[in-house]
Amino acid sequence: MNEKAMRKSRWITTVSLIIIIGITYLSAVITEFNFIDSVATLPKALSWIFANLWITQETWERLPAILGKLNETIFMSIAATTLAAIISLFLGLMGSKTTKVNNVFSVLARLIASFSRNIPVVAWSLILLISFGQNSLTGFLALFVGTLGFLTRAFIESIDEASQSAVEALQATGATYAHIVNKAVIPQSLPQMLSWILFMIETNIRSATLVGILTGTGIGYTFDLYYKSLNYNAVALVTFTIVIAVIIIELISNRIRKVIL
């Protein structure tokens, strides 16, 4: 019985491996992707990067303008994340097994979560672009919607795992729903939730660049502008500031995490 199962699992491994190799080969053929050729272009690509993506003296003069746009982007990400977090908290409470008020809201919350989460932020930008046009509201909404889904999902799990038993105990004392949420669920799951919010702010600052390119706002727009006008030195500077900003945000949020957890 056991040996049979083992043999069977080995057989499955072999077959899966063959299938994966087959699919890889097929996709390479279909997309005309040539591995050798692409490796061959690598040195050329690298030397181009080193030749053009230099931050020169005169591009530094553009720094204040770039930082202004970067600020705008960072604050938009934070604003979108915070607003989404507030609504997600509500949806999370509705969606969690332990704190749901009724099944209708619970299903609705989970539906909203999976719907907005399973469509990538880039797709949201493009969808919203059609209805709202190229402005900062579109970028904000795209980040907001994606974050809403992710945070709702994360909050549901945080609430479920953090407070099931305490909720039962407080119900048994005759506490009201508001008591239970405010004095047991939130205190217990808040650190976990804050951690997810920080994570989402980091993620959104990264995505904001891409969303900005599409919706013509913030640092993404600046990037796009220099890129299209072939000012690669400025592109390098923009990229550099984004990287630095993301690293700084990450350091800050790691510090906050350490304090709250």
């Binding site: 407070s163 305490a166 105990a169 119900q171 048994a172 004392t173 005759g174 205190p187 217990q188």
Partner: peptide
Amino acid sequence: RTDIGMVFQHYNLVPRL
């Protein structure tokens, strides 16, 4: 329920408080 106290196997406290 105020007249009936309950004690649990896993204590069911709010651990962070």
